[in-house]
């Protein structure tokens, strides 16, 4: 999902900690330590995640020129988070297991035991996995290094959890998702904010304007 082109759906994060000394060097080191590594189809692991160049999702070779960009507002670190998932297609595994199980049972004149069925399934899945193509997801991230703000081009929980985890592992810096609470703390006066409670009418309705559910009209306790 695209910082550089395509549809825009972003979540913003604030970077809570200051940049390290020699930031370009340290940040690049962190990126390279967690650069994307392709999956080995023979391995047990069926998922891989890591950083790739925002200019080319197949390029995990992260050189400064592919990562640091001078933008009108200041310097950016731009990178993509790539996740590959390599699994044998479930329907095809099921079909082949069924066919081979039937053949084996006919040959041996008996039903396969549970453990034999399990072993058969694992073998079929392993074979099919060698011929499968990974599902690839690439999500862009843009870090305004001067403004201490991060933009991540996904709003799904799984993608954001992965992003936060990899960011912290790569750079050792804390980030927090933006939102009304964070913006309020950045803008508002602390004592005034501490006194805030939800506006009863906005959460339970405006009595007298229209009929309200019985619970909302009880003894003025709107929330």
């Amino acid at each position: 999902m695209g910082a550089l082109k395509g549809s825009i759906a972003v979540r913003r994060y604030a970077v809570l900690d200051p940049l390290p000394a020699e930031p370009r060097k340290r940040l690049l080191k962190g990126l390279r330590a967690h650069a994307f590594l392709p999956l080995d189809p023979k391995a047990e692991v069926d998922r891989a995640s890591g950083w790739v160049s925002i200019l080319d999702g197949d390029d995990p070779d992260l050189e400064p020129i592919k990562v640091f960009f001078l933008a009108p507002g200041g310097e950016h670190l731009r990178v993509s988070l790539r996740t590959d998932i390599l699994r044998a297609p479930t329907a095809e595994v099921r079909r082949q297991v069924r066919a081979r199980a039937q053949a084996m049972e006919a040959e041996e004149g008996r039903r396969l035991s549970r453990s034999e069925q399990r072993t058969l399934k694992e073998e079929v899945a392993r074979t099919l996995k060698l011929r499968a193509f990974p599902r690839v997801k690439i999500i862009d991230a843009v870090w305004d290094l001067d403004g201490k703000q991060l933009w991540f081009w996904s709003q799904t929980k799984a993608a954001n959890d992965l992003f936060i985890d990899l960011f912290v592992k790569s750079f050792g810096l804390r980030i927090e998702a933006d939102g009304p609470a964070r913006w309020a703390r950045a803008i508002g006066e602390e004592r005034a904010l501490a006194k805030l409670e939800p506006t009863p009418e906005l959460w339970s309705g405006f009595a007298g304007v229209r009929p309200l559910p019985a619970a909302a009209q009880d003894d003025g306790e709107a929330i």
Binding site: S7, I8, A9, V10, R11, R12, Q155, A177, D178, G179, P180, W183
Partner: peptide
């Protein structure tokens, strides 16, 4: 043109 969600102020379907 965009959609704004209350929870994280996520921006969706942004048309610049």
């Amino acid at each position: 043109r965009f959609a704004l969600a209350a929870e994280h102020f996520d921006l969706k379907r942004v048309k610049l």
